[in-house]
Computed example of a mutant assay.
Amino acid sequence: MSTLKAWENYKIIDAGNKEKLEQLDDILIVRSEPVALFNKEKPDLWHDVHAVFKVSAKNKGQWQIHKPLPQSIILKYRDWQFISALGKFKHIGIFPEQAQNWDWMQNIIHESQRTHLKVLNLFAYTGGATVACASMVGVEEVVHVDAAKKMVQWAKDNVKLNNLTHQRVRFLVDDVMKFVEREIRRKRQYDIIILDPPSYGRGPNNQLWKIEDHLIPLLHKLKQLLSDQPLFLLLNSYSTHLSAMMIQNMMMDVFDQGSLQVNEIGIPISNSKKILPTGVTGKWTP
């Protein structure tokens, strides 16, 4: 398993009984966590929190606020800053475990010593990978695509916060599959492709996405968008029903040449030997 390096002001204090206790700067929150199928180690720390996300029927829920909260919090990793806030579906505007993938991307880009690289970031959320790639000297353009208008605006704010507005970042609110099909017709190509698809979702025009049905067809299409000298394709999955081996098999159906590394990723729990699993990452390089 690949694990997260330390953020400056984010950590998981404890986890267990399908919940996790997180610290964002000096704010404590509790969120549901289906993979925390073990016991809490620090039960006394769970009582004095600022907010709790309570799951209700049909896997929905809402935040219960117990103490005054700022409208947003700036989370810091390395030289980057990201806006965090309590949102719908228990989201906080950032997936902290993805920082290890940002580090890996930057290392690959740096070691390649290449310039004029074109990056496609799909299901791009609030732009963590967009910031990581746009801050690299060798990157000429980042195309950031997400179906949610609010998330794209959030990503724009993160890019601005990191003083990267001078970089060539193109933001698009679009259905990923439809966008990719148009790019194929336009004969566009990218040296780097990043995708972080949800288990289930809908596009701006109510287009249905189900990862078990649509991931392999999407990967086949993305293979057509890779340049003649691609650097990498990185896939991240949070779907608890898709194991690392299942993701590996799906990627092997498409990428039968080159190198493929598929690993679980996770976040160490503070002052504990336990690691909270947070997803699976597949990395293809030629």
Rank of each mutant, 00 (worst) to 15 (best):
S2C: 02
L4K: 04
W7K: 04
K11S: 12
K11P: 03
D14S: 12
N17S: 14
E19F: 12
Q23V: 02
D25P: 03
I27S: 06
L28W: 03
V30N: 05
S32Y: 09
S32I: 11
P34I: 09
V35K: 04
P43M: 11
P43E: 13
D44E: 15
L45F: 05
H47Y: 08
D48C: 07
V49N: 06
K54S: 07
S56Q: 00
K58R: 14
K58P: 04
Q62F: 03
W63V: 10
Q64E: 15
I65P: 01
P70K: 06
S72K: 09
S72H: 08
I73Q: 05
L75N: 01
L75V: 05
L75S: 01
W80L: 04
I83A: 00
I83V: 01
A85E: 09
L86Q: 11
K88N: 14
I94P: 07
A99Q: 11
N101K: 05
D103I: 15
I108Y: 02
I109K: 06
H110M: 08
S112F: 03
Q113M: 09
T115M: 10
V119L: 04
V119C: 11
L120P: 08
Y125E: 03
T126I: 02
T126W: 00
G127H: 08
G128Y: 01
T130G: 06
C133W: 07
A134C: 10
M136C: 15
M136G: 01
V137K: 15
E141L: 10
V142R: 02
V143R: 12
V143S: 07
A148I: 14
K149P: 05
M151A: 14
M151R: 09
K156H: 10
D157G: 01
T165Q: 14
Q167Y: 01
R170G: 02
D174L: 02
D174G: 04
M177P: 01
E181M: 11
E183C: 13
R186T: 03
K187P: 00
Q189R: 14
I192K: 01
I194E: 02
L195V: 08
D196M: 04
P198H: 10
Y200G: 00
R202V: 04
R202S: 02
G203L: 12
P204T: 10
L215G: 10
H220W: 13
L231Q: 12
F232H: 05
L233H: 09
L235N: 07
M245I: 06
M245C: 01
Q248G: 05
Q248Y: 14
M250R: 04
M251P: 00
D256P: 01
G258V: 09
Q261E: 14
N263C: 07
N263V: 12
E264F: 13
I267G: 08
S270L: 12
N271D: 15
I275T: 14
P277V: 05
G282D: 03
